[in-house]
Design a protein around this nucleic acid. Structure first.
Length: 280
DNA sequence: GACCAGGATTGCT
DNA sequence: AGCAATCATGGT
């Protein structure tokens, strides 16, 4: 079953696809402006057949209304970017929002995958983190219609630290990943039910677990749930982006960034996204 | 061969 | 409460 969708606000699918293509686990075809994504057990294809000013899409493979709603939510098709764009034109980030106009927050397809990915990315350069993520999914996940899916938490919960260690994960990362997978597998932690809670509640809940600090919890809110008002001050990528934007000879301290958050609020997540985008 | 990377924890003052 | 050491290893 296929259907078309037109948006009434500027939306850059070109930017979305090139950003998704940075992750080798995603199934992006830039020449056909297409991406395939897993929604539970169903593979959905989204094809861009419009432009920035007149965004239009073919959505192929839908089986239920719930899947359609998930697609709208993941790709930010269901809420306009216009108020956000207007908001930032009145801030010190206006040049970035002109440069990347129509760039939405895309949420990850799997909440568990989001946590795993964040733990892998902690303190590692992007390219090595990418290698580890790919190795992890290829080893423990499964492939469906050419798409690699994250393994079930139960599989990781039963691994030995040494198994991950052999795959060049640090002992600590291995402990973190197995620990959080156990909590999920045993039912102590249910990521899906956190969706209805406030940002602060989710932060405090996730940080209880070993291996999840402020950066990982904020990343879950931002890229897992698509919450709009997060700015991970601990992120070196954001620090480096601001260093470049503000022409500093060093990375800005958290105390130098914090005063700007009020002017970017309630859309701090977009400030972060556009800053990341500017140094990719 | 340092030093840094989409940090977090532990152990010390 | 706050700082330093520690972690593994690829990239620069």
């Amino acid at each position: 079953m296929a259907q078309t969708l037109e948006l009434a606000f500027k939306y850059s699918m070109e930017d979305v696809l090139s950003r998704l293509a940075l992750d080798p686990l995603n199934c992006v075809d830039l020449s056909n402006q297409t991406v395939k994504i897993p929604i539970d057990e169903t593979i959905i294809t989204i094809q861009s057949i419009g432009t920035l000013h007149e965004p239009k899409f073919m959505i192929i493979g839908l089986e239920t209304d719930e899947q359609y709603e998930r697609v709208l939510s993941i790709f930010h098709f269901n809420r306009s970017l216009e108020p956000i764009h207007q908001h930032f034109l009145g801030t010190n980030l206006h040049s970035l929002f002109l440069k990347f106009e129509g760039t939405p927050i895309i949420t990850d397809f799997s909440l568990y995958g989001n946590i795993i990915k964040s733990i892998i990315h902690q303190q590692l350069n992007l390219s090595f983190a990418k290698t580890l993520t790919e190795r992890f999914v290829n080893t423990f996940g499964r492939s469906k219609e050419g798409i690699w899916l994250h393994p079930a938490p139960e599989i990781i919960a039963n691994l030995e630290v040494s198994t991950l260690r052999e795959m060049q994960f640090s002992t600590r990362k291995a402990e973190y990943m197995i620990g959080i997978s156990k909590a999920i597998a045993e039912g102590n932690l249910n990521l899906e039910t956190l969706v209805s809670q406030s940002d602060d509640f989710i932060l405090s809940e996730l940080i209880k677990y070993r291996g999840i600090g402020p950066w990982t919890a904020e990343s879950f809110l931002l890229f897992g749930l698509g919450r709009e008002n997060l700015f991970p001050l601990a992120d070196v990528g954001l620090q480096n982006s601001l260093k470049q934007l503000w022409n500093l000879d060093r990375k800005p301290m958290k105390s130098e960034i914090a005063p700007h958050l009020d002017s970017w609020s309630p859309y701090n997540s977009y400030a972060a996204l556009y800053l990341w985008r500017n140094i990719e």
